[in-house]
């Protein structure tokens, strides 16, 4: 709790929740600032509903990406999978140069409009930083530790579970953090292919030239991303080698 108070995560989180639920209450303010737009607050869907849908997309895709990415990295760093290590690392690095918006757009012809292409694009794109970091994290475990663990009679599974993964955890978490940040942004663009997200007011506003909608969506999306990132920062501090906190 002390950590939470020391970071802005709590305050920005509270601001986010307040705006999420209280946006309609700001209607007079927007009405005064933008007299030509009625209704002054986006009302095609509730902001809470948009947020939950956005969160659902990101959570589903990122969880799957984190699990699959770590599994792939574990495979690529085992003796049996070592042959695939180079190509996996390369694919992860090169894949990240693909513009996320392009990946999303390319998922549409394959999967149709709606939430499905968004989740799949988020998943595929989200895999890459996780794979990249998990490989780096596992390979960063000093060889002497691995040997000591084996020498004491740990099974390969025990070496992975008790030594390699805990030591790689901070690096893996950093990868997941990147993955989630990108997923939140890309899911926002998912509104253009029919997913329901906090980006929906932005695109409605851009299409209908209704600036307040753009503003409302943009502020909420930005806060969502920033608060999530700050929560990851808190988690990263927790996960840091217990001794170095």
């Amino acid at each position: 709790m002390r950590i939470a108070l020391k970071t802005p995560a709590l305050w920005l989180g509270l601001l986010f929740v307040t705006l999420l639920t209280g946006m309609p209450g700001l209607s007079p303010v927007f009405g005064w600032a933008f007299p030509r737009v009625r209704p002054a607050v986006f009302d095609r869907a509730g902001f809470v509903e948009l947020f939950l849908s956005h969160l659902g997309l990101v959570a589903a895709a990122s969880t799957a990406a984190a699990l699959a990415g770590v599994a792939a990295a574990v495979f690529a760093t085992r003796p049996a999978g070592r042959d695939f290590r180079t190509i996996a690392a390369l694919l992860a690095a090169a894949g990240q140069t693909f513009p996320p918006a392009a990946v999303l757009a390319l998922a549409v012809p394959a999967l149709g409009f709606g939430a499905r292409p968004t989740v799949v694009a988020l998943f595929v794109y989200g895999l890459l930083p996780v794979v990249e970091n998990a490989i780096a994290g596992i390979e960063g475990v000093p060889e002497g530790l691995r040997e000591a663990a084996q020498g004491m009679g740990m099974t390969p599974w025990q070496v992975l579970r008790r030594v390699e993964l805990p030591l790689a955890a901070p690096v893996i978490l950093a990868g997941v953090r990147v993955s989630v940040t990108v997923a939140i942004g890309t899911a926002t663009i998912g509104s253009t292919v029919g997913a329901l997200t906090l980006g929906t007011p932005i695109f409605d506003g851009l299409a209908g030239n209704k600036l307040p909608y753009v503003l409302q969506g943009a502020v909420l999306v930005a806060l969502f991303a920033v608060v999530t990132d700050l929560l990851f920062a808190v988690l990263a501090r927790r996960l840091q080698p217990a001794d170095r906190r």
């Binding site: 000093p142 002497g144 530790l145 040997e147 000591a148 663990a149 020498g151 004491m152 008790r162 030594v163 805990p166 030591l167 080698p241 217990a242 001794d243």
Partner: peptide, 12 residues
């Protein structure tokens, strides 16, 4: 028992 030069102590 097995002891190595780099100690191999688990830092975590």
């Amino acid at each position: 028992g097995y002891v190595i030069q780099s100690t191999g102590l688990f830092p975590h």
